[in-house]
Simulated assay, not measured.
Amino acid sequence: MRTTRLLAGLCAGLALMATGALAQERTGNFSGLQLQGDKPIQIESDKLEVRDTESIAIFTGNVSVVQGDTLLKSGKMTVHYKKKEGAEASSTTMPGGGNIERMEVDGKVYVKTKTQVATGDRGTFDMATEIMTLTGSEVVLTEGQNVIVGCKLTVEMKSGAAKLEGCGSGSGRVKMLLTPEKQGQ
């Protein structure tokens, strides 16, 4: 149970960034973490490229997204959005205007919430299915002194169900180190 909460909590931070930072309107809870839709979002990168004909926006170079207690860092973030048609399109000041389909992050992905950290090589968040995936040669999840290592983390944000898979070759097993909490601390 604690492992599932750890996995889901870490991923909720990334999902929070995906839903809030990209102006997708949502309210509710993911695995006990409340979305911070009312908090300001700060996105910084070395470069932003908008490819309106392809319905994507690409942030590259030292990408940093901050909302409340959640921080997402990566080398690149690609936002895929639905293109608005007609009069609706002319009223949009930002690409996608809240119609985000999917977000992809690459290049040493780092997600930090108030108490947890997740790292990997790549991450995706599908807005329609609310499924977050973090992959890499080593996906590491930490909370305090507790550490879980695998190669693919999949979280269904609606249910909070989380699955961490091994790497499939060599010593491709999921590894976990749990440190018992000391009484009175």
Rank of each mutant, 00 (worst) to 15 (best):
M1L: 01
R2K: 06
T3A: 02
T4K: 09
T4R: 10
T4C: 03
T4N: 13
L6G: 02
G9E: 00
C11H: 14
C11D: 14
A12N: 11
A12T: 08
G13H: 08
G13A: 08
L14W: 11
L14P: 04
L14I: 06
L16N: 13
L16I: 06
M17A: 12
M17T: 09
M17N: 13
T19C: 10
T19W: 01
G20P: 00
A21E: 09
A21D: 14
L22M: 11
A23K: 13
R26F: 12
T27E: 14
F30S: 13
L33Q: 15
L35T: 09
D38R: 11
K39H: 11
Q42T: 10
Q42N: 10
I43S: 02
E44F: 06
E44I: 06
S45L: 03
S45V: 05
E49M: 04
V50E: 06
V50M: 09
D52L: 04
E54W: 02
S55M: 10
I56R: 15
I58P: 06
S64A: 14
Q67E: 12
Q67C: 14
L71A: 04
L72V: 12
G75I: 13
M77K: 02
T78F: 12
T78W: 11
T78V: 15
Y81S: 13
Y81V: 07
K82A: 15
K84M: 11
G86F: 09
G86V: 09
A87L: 12
A89E: 14
A89D: 15
T92V: 11
M94H: 11
P95R: 05
G98H: 04
N99Y: 13
I100N: 00
I100C: 01
E101W: 03
M103S: 03
V105G: 14
D106S: 07
D106R: 03
G107K: 00
K108L: 05
K108E: 08
V109W: 02
V111D: 05
K114A: 10
T115D: 06
T119A: 05
G120H: 03
R122F: 05
G123W: 07
T124Y: 07
F125M: 07
A128R: 10
A128C: 00
T129G: 11
E130P: 07
E130N: 13
M132E: 14
T135K: 07
G136N: 08
S137H: 10
E138N: 07
Q145I: 02
Q145N: 09
N146I: 06
I148E: 01
V149T: 13
G150Y: 04
G150D: 04
G150C: 03
G150Q: 01
C151I: 01
C151W: 04
C151V: 01
L153W: 01
V155W: 00
M157F: 05
A162I: 01
K163P: 01
L164G: 02
G166E: 04
C167K: 02
C167Q: 05
G168T: 00
S171D: 10
R173N: 03
R173W: 07
V174M: 07
M176E: 09
M176R: 02
Q183S: 12
G184N: 08
Q185G: 06
